[in-house]
Amino acid sequence: MIEPYPLRFKPVLKQTLWGGRLLGEQLGKPIGNDANYAESWEVVDHGTDQSIVQSGCLAGKSLRELLLNHREWLMGDAEEDQFPLLLKYLDCNRVLSVQVHPSDDYGAKMTIPDRGKTEAWYIVAAKPDSVVYAGLKPGIGETELRNAIQQGTADEVLHQFHPEPGSCVFIPAGTVHALGEGLLVAEIQQSSDTTFRLFDWNRVDSQGNARELHIQAGIDVTDFSRGPVQPIQVKTGVHAWQTLVMCDKFVLRAFDSGSQPQQGEEFGDDDHFHILTIPKGTATLTTENEEIPLATGDSLLLPAALGQVRVDLAANSTALEMIAV
């Protein structure tokens, strides 16, 4: 039996046209010299995208290998054949496309089956004029959405707001959405990479080509009854974990120290794995056997066998903790 310990993975970095430099400059990710680093996948088991353990007796092992060879140690009583969640950071240096994700039922019927994608965003940083597009405005149906896409005015039918750092936005499958320019975001989602792009702001590449859209599939999976999505604000300086999202896919909690250091409540020892990340400031994770310092941008997967742990925060720091349901 392997002695349980917190697992730190090598980030899987993604470059796209809307990325920037913040993953390295603010979160300490090992980016190169390019200016288009968009995503850092912190914990992932999805096809060829695999988290690789950085240290300890499991160094070099992928998350898929851990699931196959040490399922109960990692997952507790869960009977998943794939790790169910994906944690990533996103640098939205430019506005992302307007998109929507399918449900599990729809995803299972696709030519290449995949999970559906319910997700939640934690806003790490935001420029004052940054915008989140989350849900359709009241009264918008299929006809109005399709017409807006065709006319190049999709933003006019989307609910939008200027997000505050420290706020959370819950995006269930079927919710039309887009992240605007100037946002640094932590995202927890189902382990899926299925996105239907409805509108890309009339952008073209250097050859004059537009990115592929998936308008019919996107409209097919859109939940037109959902309406506008409002942000959830994390309270600062509360000496307790705050539940931000509790849905049928995952639970997302936040712990924010405010202006003073805070000792956290113990958690774990519940036959579940836990994912922990530090989007702001610094922290210390205390297990039965060690104390682990955590810097901004650090992420850990705590196997179910690890038992009880505690996270203590320095002043002006935040921790996010996630489990699958």
Results as ranks from 00 to 15, higher is better:
residue 117 K to W: 07
residue 133 Y to L: 09
residue 97 S to Q: 11
residue 92 C to Q: 03
residue 134 A to E: 15
residue 91 D to Q: 01
residue 120 A to I: 14
residue 133 Y to E: 05
residue 107 G to N: 06
residue 125 A to Q: 15
residue 123 I to Q: 02
residue 107 G to T: 08
residue 108 A to Q: 07
residue 136 L to S: 13
residue 134 A to W: 12
residue 128 P to S: 09
residue 131 V to D: 12
residue 108 A to K: 12
residue 115 R to I: 13
residue 120 A to W: 12
residue 129 D to I: 13
residue 122 Y to E: 13
residue 116 G to R: 08
residue 104 D to Y: 08
residue 87 L to S: 10
residue 112 I to K: 10
residue 121 W to H: 03
residue 109 K to A: 08
residue 88 K to P: 06
residue 91 D to G: 09
residue 134 A to P: 12
residue 136 L to H: 14
residue 107 G to D: 05
residue 130 S to A: 11
residue 110 M to H: 10
residue 107 G to S: 14
residue 89 Y to W: 12
residue 86 L to K: 11
residue 96 L to Y: 06
residue 111 T to H: 08
residue 91 D to L: 07
residue 124 V to R: 04
residue 98 V to D: 03
residue 123 I to R: 00
residue 94 R to G: 07
residue 111 T to K: 05
residue 87 L to E: 03
residue 134 A to R: 01
residue 104 D to C: 04
residue 88 K to H: 12
residue 101 H to W: 09
residue 96 L to E: 00
residue 100 V to N: 02
residue 88 K to N: 05
residue 92 C to D: 01
residue 89 Y to P: 11
residue 123 I to L: 13
residue 90 L to I: 07
residue 92 C to P: 00
residue 109 K to H: 04
residue 119 E to F: 00
residue 96 L to Q: 04
residue 128 P to I: 11
residue 91 D to P: 03
residue 128 P to Q: 09
residue 109 K to P: 03
residue 110 M to N: 10
residue 107 G to R: 02
residue 135 G to I: 09
residue 113 P to T: 02
residue 95 V to R: 06
residue 88 K to G: 12
residue 109 K to V: 07
residue 90 L to R: 06
residue 130 S to W: 05
residue 126 A to P: 04
residue 103 S to G: 13
residue 111 T to V: 14
residue 106 Y to T: 10
residue 88 K to I: 08
residue 118 T to M: 05
residue 94 R to K: 10
residue 99 Q to Y: 09
residue 100 V to A: 02
residue 89 Y to G: 09
residue 87 L to P: 03
residue 96 L to H: 02
residue 132 V to W: 01
residue 90 L to C: 08
residue 95 V to T: 12
residue 95 V to C: 14
residue 87 L to H: 04
residue 122 Y to H: 13
residue 119 E to Q: 12
residue 132 V to H: 01
residue 94 R to I: 04
residue 97 S to V: 05
residue 132 V to Y: 00
residue 116 G to D: 05
residue 106 Y to K: 02
residue 109 K to N: 05
residue 106 Y to C: 01
residue 121 W to R: 00
residue 85 L to G: 08
residue 116 G to M: 09
residue 135 G to N: 13
residue 107 G to L: 05
residue 95 V to D: 10
residue 102 P to D: 13
residue 94 R to P: 06
residue 103 S to R: 02
